[in-house]
């Protein structure tokens, strides 16, 4: 499909259309970069959402708990079609990966010679950990513009990752402290 010009008028979304687009992205979503894909579909090709609304939904999706893409789909679904839109989007997005993950697991369990398979999967896990390292690196760079932010990253990583403190308790303390530390910065006009 040809991308629409940026100033083309927004178009209405049907529940079925919302479901189908999310189903497609969910099924083809290997690894990451999904926000970019959602942007292309929802903003540029379908013209359902304008770019500013997309960006602000993305910010909310990233700061709240939950898979970022699911949160993003919930926000955009709500904006387009209310509660039913949020459900259609999230359900459409998850149904493909649900069966794909179980199918892959069954397939792997049915293979008799597990040695090479376990070796290959260990490699996949290692490479996937590489993706996480990149996310960490970007996060650390963003946080390091602001010393307290970097301190929060370090404190959380060490207490949860190295000292094995309960994640729940660490977040319960770190989240409000970190928000309080950002308070002054957030007050500045162009912080």
């Amino acid at each position: 499909m040809r991308p629409m010009p940026r100033d083309a008028p927004l178009r209405p979304a049907s529940l079925a259309g919302l479901f189908l687009v999310c189903l497609k992205i969910g099924l083809l979503s290997f690894g990451g970069g999904l926000s970019g894909w959602l942007y292309r579909e929802f903003v540029e090709q379908k013209r359902w959402i304008d770019a500013d609304d997309f960006t602000s939904s993305l910010a909310i999706s990233q700061m709240l708990p939950g898979a970022n893409v699911i949160n993003l789909v919930v926000c955009m679904g709500e904006q387009l079609r209310g509660p039913a839109g949020a459900v259609a989007g999230a359900f459409g997005f998850l149904i493909g990966p649900f069966f794909a993950a179980i199918g892959l697991s069954v397939l792997i369990d049915s293979i008799a010679n597990v040695g090479p398979l376990e070796a290959a999967l260990a490699g996949v896990a290692a490479a996937a950990t590489g993706l996480l390292i990149v996310i960490c690196w970007h996060g650390v760079r963003r946080a390091s513009r602001h010393l307290p932010g970097l301190a929060v990253v370090l404190a959380v990583a060490v207490t949860v990752g190295v000292l094995d403190w309960p994640l729940m308790a660490v977040v319960a303390v770190a989240a409000p402290v970190s928000i309080a530390l950002s308070w002054n910065r957030a007050g500045k006009p162009d912080a």
Binding site: A122, A143, H146, V156, A157, V162, S182, A186, A191
Partner: peptide, 29 residues
């Protein structure tokens, strides 16, 4: 202001948690 503070304050917590996840996966491997 509270909305921006929340946005900026929660980001480093998320990064720290992902680093902890990487450490724990490395521990398993």
């Amino acid at each position: 202001r509270w909305h921006r503070a929340m946005r900026e304050g929660l980001a480093p917590v998320g990064t720290g948690l992902i680093i902890a996840g990487v450490i724990s996966i490395f521990g398993l491997m």
